[in-house]
Computed example of a mutant assay.
Amino acid sequence: MDVTEIDHANLHIPADGVESAVAFYRDRLGLQIENRELYEAGEKPFFSVRLAPGAVLHLQPDEEFRTPSGDGFDHLAFRVDADIEDLKAELDEAGVELDRELEPLGATGVAPAVYVTDPFGYTLELKATRD
């Protein structure tokens, strides 16, 4: 098997969390929301956040949503095409609070990263480009 990249991840959110998701992922992080109209028309059980040309995050509203406890989920990590200082400045300007800052080992090696929490309790690692 030759896996080349992650295509998507599917996260459940509260049934009434669509507007909070759009406010965070689109308005604060600057990512594109896709297929919301299909979700609202009842044609899909989720809508998507475009992370990169070949990667999306499906957000599925769920009446039985429970905030992640950390028992089976820790975080999602995204590579970001920015240096760490620019990334931190962009998040600060958008009003996104940083949980922590590290230089973790990932698929492309060690690089600086910041961690943020979305409105539903999911931790996102935003890994900057290496200097």
Rank of each mutant, 00 (worst) to 15 (best):
I6E: 00
I6A: 06
I6H: 06
D7E: 11
D7Y: 08
N10H: 10
H12C: 05
I13E: 06
P14K: 01
D16V: 04
G17K: 11
V18Y: 01
E19D: 10
S20R: 15
A21Q: 07
V22T: 05
Y25E: 10
Y25I: 02
R26F: 03
R28S: 09
G30V: 01
L31W: 06
I33K: 10
A41H: 05
G42W: 02
G42K: 03
K44D: 12
P45G: 00
S48W: 12
S48N: 14
A52S: 12
A52E: 11
A55K: 09
L59F: 01
Q60L: 12
P61Y: 03
F65H: 09
R66N: 11
P68V: 07
S69T: 15
S69H: 10
G72W: 12
G72A: 13
F73E: 00
F73Y: 15
D74H: 14
R79F: 03
D81I: 10
D83Y: 04
K88F: 09
A89G: 02
A89I: 06
E90T: 13
A94D: 08
E97D: 13
L98E: 04
L105F: 00
G106Y: 15
T108L: 11
V110L: 05
A111H: 08
P112A: 02
V114A: 10
T117L: 06
P119E: 00
G121D: 08
L124E: 04
K127Y: 14
A128V: 04
A128Y: 11
R130P: 08
